[in-house]
């Protein structure tokens, strides 16, 4: 079997990596905020029933 031809790994500049990092950080914050929002809305919608579950 032929050995697959390896492509050279892309090389990124510091600037490109910095932009990607900042975008990923922003995305992480947005996702964390969404998780928190969904959690709080669930509590608000369920009210006291949030603890009412079969054991």
């Amino acid at each position: 079997m032929d050995k697959p031809e390896l492509k050279p790994a892309p090389v990124f500049s510091e600037q490109e990596l910095k932009i990607r990092q900042s975008r990923a950080t922003a995305m992480a914050w947005v996702l964390a905020a969404l998780v928190l929002l969904f959690f709080i809305v669930t509590i608000v919608k369920l009210g006291p029933n949030v603890l009412n579950r079969p054991l």
């Binding site: 892309p10 990124f12 490109e16 932009i19 975008r23 922003a26």
Partner: peptide
Amino acid sequence: PLQQAVISPGTA
């Protein structure tokens, strides 16, 4: 060009 397209230059 392929490598250039890997990381978008767009910031948040």
